[in-house]
Design a binder for these strands. Structure first.
Lengths: 232, 232
DNA sequence: TCGCTATGGTCAACTGCGTTGGCATAAGAT
DNA sequence: ATCTTATGCCAACGCAGTTGACCATAGCGA
């Protein structure tokens, strides 16, 4: 029973699995991301992951304490993807907007994985880097420490909140997805005007509107608020 | 096998379970909410619910097509709680603010349940009532139909998004919760200033700040935006 | 180059999950 | 009082995460 998991840096021996592949944290996370994309957010199971990597499910416990820790590693990988290649421009508003859209985008581009990780604190390298970047931009904008903390909170939570929501609807298992879509078509479009006049009125406009994310609009509103604070 | 589920209104015979309790959709949902609160968002299982109701797990399939449909019913109950006793004041801004805080509050007061339902479209009675209420307020404010749809989208998604995020951190299973808290204490408070100067700077302020929800601030910003549109 | 050791892959088994098909029984219509 | 059938119960299926015991071998010191 692998109560002890050797950290990736300390790992010395890379014994190939029966079929010849050599495991690593990175390979496992990448394979997990693939499985999530292919089988939905409930489709990542230890057994399936073992099958995909051609190793025994229990082997995974040599790398992660359990599926939960694997989840955190996946989340950190997503944040890493969001930040890859980014560097501050010096204009706080552009930087914050870009960071927000990048983080939101990274999660939304892996919706099945995002569902599992958006609300978790990983404490791993990439998450720390992202937080440091946001704080640096805010501080560089000239905001006092006290406000930096408040704005950081609103900014990061808004980004993660929308990422979670948008990812969730993109990642619904096929059955639920169809059920929800059907709901829009069957229920909302047929609501009797007598009991729900306003829904009936906008029903045709609603379906196309709800497809896009509301995050960009909400983000701009928040940045407006920050700008107001700065010019005060 | 119960491929057919009799809807609650059509249900005629109320045969008591072996132990004497008489089942109903409402009783099942209430018990499910209790289980969720007591055992966490992963703690609602058909078997446990059967145990709590003192009936066989399979009996639940006479009331819901599966655990997913039960989930939707739970979500709709939460929205119902949010709206109970509310009536429009006539001031659109107050009304929208109250609706937002009520919906957000209802979810957050049942975080373990909220996690399962925030991103689902139930199409049930209470959800329809809530949507109708929001649309009515916006229309009453004098917004043209086109804008009503856009604002409705931003408003409802931001509310649900924050509800989901806030609920998620409140609802983490004990193990993960402790893991995340530990992360804040062990990792964030000990980040070396050399590599992450800005995190180190605000670390002491961060922990208390992150406890509260950022939703009220974000809501007010959104309402500012709507007000601007109206006065244009 | 040789052997030792502990790393890390494998196997088998445990518990608990959602769900289903068949069956029994009593509620409500007649 | 009788009949139908809605509704509760039981047993079983396949799949999940996780664990403990076992063992092959990679990489070390000599």
């Amino acid at each position: 029973m692998p109560k002890i998991v050797v950290s990736e840096e300390k790992r010395r021996r890379r014994r190939p699995t029966r079929s010849g592949t050599v495991l690593s944290e990175q390979l496992i996370v990448e394979t997990a991301l693939r499985l999530l994309r292919e089988h939905g957010s409930a489709g990542l199971t230890a057994r399936r992951l073992g099958l995909a990597l051609d190793c025994d499910p229990s082997t995974l416990y040599r790398y992660f304490r359990g599926m939960d820790e694997l989840t955190l590693a996946i989340g950190d990988t997503l944040i890493g993807q969001a930040l890859r290649g980014w560097s501050p421009s010096g204009n706080w508003r552009d930087d914050l907007r870009t960071l927000g859209l990048r983080i939101h985008g990274a999660y939304v581009s892996h919706p099945q994985a995002a569902v599992l990780t958006t609300s978790r604190v990983t404490g791993r390298a990439n998450e720390l880097a992202a937080d440091e970047a946001v704080l640096a931009v805010l501080r560089g904008a000239g905001l006092p420490v006290r406000d930096v903390v408040a704005v950081y909170h609103a900014f990061i939570d808004q980004t993660l909140a929308f990422a979670a929501l948008d990812a969730a609807s993109l990642a619904l298992p096929n059955a639920a997805l169809r059920s929800d879509e059907e709901m829009w078509q069957s229920t909302y479009r047929r609501v009797p005007a007598a009991t729900h006049p306003h829904i009936a009125e906008v029903a045709p406009l609603l379906a196309p509107e709800m497809v896009d994310s509301a995050y960009p609009k909400a983000l701009d509103l928040l940045l407006d608020g920050v700008a107001a604070r700065l010019s005060r």
